[in-house]
Amino acid sequence: MPDQATTAATIDVRAIAPRERHPSIFLAFGKLAAGQAMDLVNDHDPRPLYYQFQEELPGQFTWSYLENGPAQWRVRIQKQRAPGHGSGQCCGACGGA
Score class of each variant (00 low, 15 high):
Met1Lys: 05
Met1Val: 11
Asp3Gly: 09
Asp3Ser: 12
Ala5Leu: 03
Thr7Pro: 00
Ala8Thr: 10
Ala9Leu: 10
Ala9Glu: 03
Ala9Met: 06
Ala9Thr: 03
Ile11Arg: 00
Ile11Leu: 14
Val13Trp: 01
Val13Arg: 01
Arg14Ala: 11
Ile16Val: 15
Pro18Ala: 14
Pro18Arg: 12
Arg19Trp: 11
Glu20Asn: 15
Glu20Ile: 10
His22Trp: 11
Pro23Trp: 07
Ser24Met: 12
Ser24Lys: 15
Ile25Asp: 00
Ile25Phe: 01
Phe26Ile: 12
Phe26His: 12
Phe26Leu: 15
Leu27Arg: 13
Ala28Glu: 07
Gly30Phe: 06
Lys31Phe: 05
Lys31Asp: 04
Leu32Thr: 06
Ala33Met: 13
Ala34Val: 03
Gly35Leu: 09
Gly35Ala: 13
Gln36Ala: 09
Ala37Tyr: 02
Asp39Asn: 14
Asp39His: 11
Leu40Glu: 00
Leu40Val: 02
Val41Arg: 01
Asn42Thr: 08
Asn42Leu: 00
Asp43Asn: 10
Asp43Ser: 10
Asp43Arg: 04
His44Pro: 07
Pro46Cys: 08
Pro46Asp: 07
Pro46Val: 06
Arg47Ser: 15
Arg47Gln: 14
Arg47Met: 14
Pro48Ser: 14
Pro48Ile: 13
Leu49Ser: 06
Leu49Ile: 13
Tyr51Trp: 15
Tyr51Gln: 15
Tyr51Met: 14
Glu55Gly: 14
Glu55Tyr: 14
Glu56Tyr: 11
Pro58Glu: 00
Gln60His: 12
Gln60Glu: 14
Gln60Asp: 11
Phe61Gly: 05
Thr62Gln: 06
Trp63Ala: 03
Tyr65Ile: 05
Tyr65Pro: 01
Leu66Pro: 03
Glu67Ser: 03
Gly69Leu: 07
Pro70Cys: 01
Gln72Phe: 00
Gln72Gly: 00
Trp73Gln: 00
Trp73Asp: 01
Arg74His: 01
Arg74Trp: 00
Val75Leu: 05
Val75Ile: 12
Ile77Arg: 03
Ile77Asp: 02
Ile77Phe: 09
Ile77Leu: 13
Gln78Leu: 11
Lys79Tyr: 12
Lys79Glu: 14
Gln80Leu: 15
Gln80Tyr: 08
Gln80Cys: 13
Arg81Tyr: 07
Arg81Asp: 02
Arg81Ser: 03
Pro83Gly: 07
Gly84His: 04
His85Asp: 05
Ser87Lys: 09
Ser87Trp: 05
Gly88His: 04
Gly88Trp: 04
Cys90Glu: 03
Cys91Phe: 12
Ala93Lys: 10
Ala93Tyr: 07
Gly95Ser: 09
Gly96Val: 02
Ala97Glu: 05
Ala97Ile: 06
